[in-house]
Amino acid sequence: MGITNITFKKFISLIFTERGSIEYSVLFDIRLPRIILGLAIGGALSLAGVILQGLFRNPLVEPYTLGISGGAALGVCLNIIFQLEQNLGGISLPLSGFLGAILIIFLVYSLSIKKGILKIQELLLTGVMLSFILSSLIMLIMAISHIQDLQGIIFWIMGSLAEPNWFLIKLMFFVSILGLLFSYIFCHALNALSLGEEEALHLGINVELTKRLLFILASLLTGFSVSVAGIIGFVGLVVPHFMRNLIGNDHRILLISSFLSGAGFLVLCDTLARTIISPLELPVGVITGILGGSIFIYVLSKKQMKS
């Protein structure tokens, strides 16, 4: 597949005998990191999507709705126009993205707490408004920045899985697995919450604590993903939806199945993105949008026909 044709037989012999060859390098230095990062990001975004949709009981919420991605994008923009990257090295870009994301998470969170209660509806509204403000700020920066910086910003916003830094890839993988394990503590709580807050309370769930922890968990997953790979759209919206349609609303299986299918979906999209018009590569967001959107509409229309 791809530019370099590597058959399965060749693949086996590569692993055992031909270390140091070009094909080996293509497989293990270029494709493997991309696949691992794709699995991690796809899983994390889908997981964040499931959690947020469950929390808000709103199927339109996705990881980027709450302005977290906007915060990360603003952080990266500022980094690029002040040229911190030259002074602090390549790792500063994801770092400033993450700082931006954390700042927005904190802001949304503290603005939505009234008298010690986290108001879910206000959280949503504040997040949406903040993300509008942020995208305007980003446009402002783009309008007044130099051409060369502009290009850097646009590419970052389009999102990409071609991350050269192994440390970031491993970190992201670790974070998303940890996120999955952590989310399982709340799978019963999420099921209860989908009945409504009061009902959950009657079922003996500490609603306040659960809401806060779930919000923070989903935000952190999103923040990490966006900081490492930029804004790859649609995964966090479509995959959770799709899985809900397919296997129902039980979060005990919904969490893991969304995680896995999100991971697989993103890797598939990335493979298509880099092979469809090779040697040119498409931004992966192009494929996630087109493929994810059309599959989703197809499934939705089929479901309506049945009912």
Binding site: I30, A162, E163, P164, R274, S278, P279, L280
Partner: peptide, 29 residues
């Protein structure tokens, strides 16, 4: 602005000359 690293690698170059428009991530890789 968007290069294919896999393709470059298979061509076995001993020098790649980049411009200001080449993405830094790609150069690093």
């Amino acid at each position: 602005i968007q290069i294919n690293i896999e393709k470059i690698l298979t061509l076995k170059p001993d020098l790649v000359i980049a411009t200001a428009l080449t993405q830094k991530k790609d150069i690093e890789k």
